[in-house]
Computed example of a mutant assay.
Amino acid sequence: MARVLIYGGTGGIGLATARALRARDVALHLVARDAAGLERAASDLGETTVTAGDVTDPSLFALATAAAGEALAGLVFAVGSITLKPIGRLSAQEIEADFRLNALGAFLAVQAAAPALKAGAGESTSGIVLFSTVAAAQGFSAHVSVAMAKGAVEGLALSLAAELSPSVRVNVIAPSLTRTNLARPLTANETVANGIAGMHAVPRLGTPEDAGALAAFLVSDDAGWITGQVIGVDGGRSSVRTKG
């Protein structure tokens, strides 16, 4: 059975994607830094193999792809960062770290997996899902580093959608603020969280399941005519204003 390879498989959105795919009876290969978390996830999910490693290590991608199998049904790169600082407080090292984690990591993941994704397409297609952020297109203050890195992910995805067609589809999910461990510094204070939630047409913060359900759909054959898209899972934040 061809597997879907998920980077960030123990994180909030990555694990929610894994659960949504297992509900579709899809076999998985999860990659994350948390070896113990990977083993727990594999035990809970079933039909799941794992590779422990850090996506900032370039050697990880060949190892993970080989362990996932010669044919892949899909690839999900659910890895991200939230570096929120005004430009005067940002260092070149922080910018580089965000780019390496988000954009270079996504590139290396796809580069390593492309032959297996083409092999797994069969008579249909395989699917790649990368993650951006609503901030890449909206221009939020203090989001320079993450918006730059995720903007590069969107450019990467559009180029790959052309290059890897017709056998491999490539799409991007751009969430707004979602209740994950990564976002906890912003969501732990309920007054702050409620204020941000109120900026959305659907006035709540996202959940990992919101993005995970869409990622599982985009990987599947149900999305067989969808490629080259950046799709907001953002409560309307990217396009809808209810006040002013």
Rank of each mutant, 00 (worst) to 15 (best):
S91K: 09
S91P: 06
E94D: 09
E94N: 04
I95Y: 03
E96Q: 08
D98A: 15
R100D: 15
R100C: 15
L101S: 08
L101A: 06
A103W: 08
L104R: 13
A106L: 06
F107A: 04
F107E: 00
F107W: 05
L108A: 01
V110M: 10
V110S: 05
V110F: 13
Q111G: 11
A112W: 00
A113F: 14
A113I: 06
A113K: 07
A114C: 08
A116K: 01
L117R: 05
A119Y: 11
A119Q: 14
G120V: 03
G122I: 08
G122M: 10
G122Y: 07
E123Q: 08
T125I: 12
S126I: 00
G127F: 11
I128A: 08
V129R: 05
V129S: 13
V129Y: 11
S132L: 09
A135H: 14
A135G: 07
A136N: 14
A137I: 06
A137D: 11
Q138V: 10
G139W: 03
G139A: 09
G139R: 00
S145C: 13
V146F: 02
M148R: 02
M148F: 00
M148V: 08
A149L: 11
A149F: 02
K150I: 03
A152C: 05
V153G: 03
E154S: 03
E154A: 02
L160M: 05
L160C: 02
A161D: 09
A161Q: 06
A161N: 12
A162K: 13
P166I: 00
V168L: 06
V168G: 05
V168M: 15
V170F: 07
N171S: 14
V172L: 07
V172P: 12
V172N: 03
I173V: 03
A174S: 13
S176I: 11
L177P: 06
N181T: 13
L186F: 04
L186T: 02
A188H: 02
E190S: 12
A193F: 05
A193S: 04
A197F: 10
H200N: 04
R204P: 12
G206E: 11
